[in-house]
Each structure stands twice: as C-alpha cells, then as structure tokens.
Design a protein around this nucleic acid. Structure first.
Length: 155
DNA sequence: GCCAACGTTGGC
DNA sequence: GCCAACGTTGGC
C-alpha cells in the first residue's frame, strides 16, 4: 500500500468536484516524473491526499483512493483537447492517467504554511523550495501524521 | 551535449 | 499580478 499527494487547482477541478462525481480520471499530467508514478507505481487501493494549488489557501483538503491503475491518457490523442500532445500516439503513449475515487473532504484545509512548519513533513517534496511536482509519494509516517490532524478521524 | 530562451507552475 | 524556480525546446 502506497500513499500519494496529488495537486489540482480548485478553479479547474477541486475536492468538491470530486465529491460530486465520485470517480474521475486524473488527466492532463504532462511531467515525466509524475508520469512515471502514474504509469508504474500507483496501484488500485492506494490512498492519496487531494491538494489544492494555485489558490488563496493552498493545502491538503481531503483524501481519495486510486480506483484504476495507470493507463494511457486519451486526451493526449485528441487534437481538439487542451492537453493534446502530437508526440503521444496510441501505439506508443507518452502520457498516463489513473482514476481516483472520493473518500472524504477534511473539515478544514491543512494548509501548506502549517505543513511547512512541521518537522514531520520536512522530507516531503511538497514543502521544499521550488517544488513543482504535481504528484508525489507520501511516506506512511507522513500520511499518519497528517491524518492525525483531522479531528473526525482521530480515535 | 551545452545552454539560452521560453513557457509553466504555483506561492505570495 | 508578480516573479522565482523549474522543465523543455531548439540552435549550435
């Protein structure tokens, strides 16, 4: 069982959108490091934090589950699509996505500014300067530490 | 293979 | 809106 953190801009697709639809393809990732995790490492049943980026209060807003392991991202093949990439084709797909399923929205945002102050999170790429990775692994210790901040799940 | 230019990410 | 940091592109 692995743990992940996945970023999305709430203006584009936020935790409330995921709560509404239930399950959603996590598409449009166009970074090789993140692609490798989508394609090779993420497994059905893994858990992931949903992170809101590029917003007034960036931070972790909930959690989800990987509902389908990595498969080629079809929007890369669609010339009309925003995430079209002519260098990706069905015979040799360059980009991958997974499907994620909503699990819960946290009662409050676990903010980036707070996370940055926690020694337990010091090794997480999220809090490192200049980090732009949109998908990253979370250790089981970090996962438990963050979840311990959510009152409803304590006990 | 180097590296400058460029585009993007994402916090602030 | 600004801009630092970073990844990618393409000329050489």
């Amino acid at each position: 069982m692995n743990y992940w953190l996945m970023k999305s801009e709430p203006d584009v697709f936020g935790i409330d959108d995921l709560a509404r639809v239930g399950t959603e393809p996590w598409e449009g990732v166009r970074n090789y490091q993140a692609r490798n995790m989508l394609r090779d490492a993420m497994a059905v049943g893994d858990h992931a934090f949903f992170y809101h980026s590029n917003t007034a209060q960036p931070g972790i807003v909930g959690m989800m589950r990987i509902a389908r392991a990595g498969y080629p991202d079809p929007v890369a093949f669609d010339p009309e699509h925003r995430y079209y990439d002519p260098k990706s084709d069905p015979d040799n797909p360059r980009w991958y996505r997974v499907d994620v399923a909503f699990e819960r929205k946290f009662p409050q945002v676990i903010s980036l500014s707070w996370l940055k102050q926690q020694p337990e999170m010091a090794d997480c790429p999220l809090v490192k300067r200049g980090n732009r990775l949109s998908i990253m692994p979370i250790t089981s210790a970090q996962w438990a530490f963050v979840l311990a901040q959510v009152p409803e799940i304590k006990s």
